[in-house]
Design a protein around this nucleic acid. Structure first.
Lengths: 126, 126
DNA sequence: CAGGCTAGGTTTCCGATGGGAACCGCCAGG
DNA sequence: CCTGGCGGTTCCCATCGGAAACCTAGCCTG
């Protein structure tokens, strides 16, 4: 434990840890990705993402807004219309997220394979 | 909901979602990063990371192992010694994770600034 | 005019999850 | 024989996440 080099950046209390934990949510990355092509409404995100509850979506959006990654535009119409949009800061996160999806596209298969091998280790004679 | 383009890859039930959710843990990315420079022992990870409990570390390591991203080497010694190491598959994740840390290094400041502005919106006259 | 509809958000309730800390097993050494 | 070091598990509790009902507010329909 004596010398992890300058790469230890995100193993302690540095801003990197904060940011990684900001993204380390089940929904954060997905929501950001959902906004990557332009303003999207609350209800659209619900349908796009699939599996997220209103509560968690709102909560995630609020957090991203508080962190300056997205902006919220509420139109005083009836029925109410609310659109969310990436800020320039939030837009800079799309590239890293794309890298993750690219990784998934390339290696997701291998991960599923490993998972399968691990779940049934006695399927062929223990 | 009619045409999000081919980029909708990870908004549904595709493998990308699975993988993103695999990483969407408070500790997963940090642990992988901690292993990025070679085999590391359980206790070393505890000290490197700081804030993680034994339970969560073990749990995270088990999951990563099940997904084929790391391998576990237990030496029948006394006191027990257990080392964890990235598999070749796991090593391919280091690049994407580095992108996140780079992003954090570049924009973490802006995020903290936005957070601060949001937390005290009435600090200068409501 | 009353009730229902839409759409975003909040509240309530409950099951799942995460963290802390104590405990376990193992064996060498004092 | 008791302690100490290390990896891991168990127990307990606080928090979180999800489902679904409720709320607001104005238009439309009956």
């Amino acid at each position: 434990m004596s010398g992890f080099g300058p790469d230890a950046v995100f193993l302690a209390d540095c801003p990197a840890r904060l940011t990684v934990e900001l993204l380390a949510d089940k929904w954060t990355a997905v929501v950001l990705y959902g906004l990557s092509e332009g303003p999207v409404r609350h209800g659209e995100l619900i349908e796009m993402i699939g599996g997220i509850s209103r509560k968690m979506l709102t909560q995630t959006l609020r957090r991203l807004e508080a962190h300056g990654l997205i902006s919220r535009h509420a139109y005083a119409e009836v029925p109410p219309r609310v659109e969310y949009e990436l800020t320039p800061l939030g837009a800079t996160l799309i590239d890293p997220i794309h890298m993750l999806t690219e990784w998934a596209r390339a290696h997701g298969d291998a991960v599923l394979d490993a998972l399968d091998a691990d779940h049934e280790p006695l399927a062929h004679g223990d």
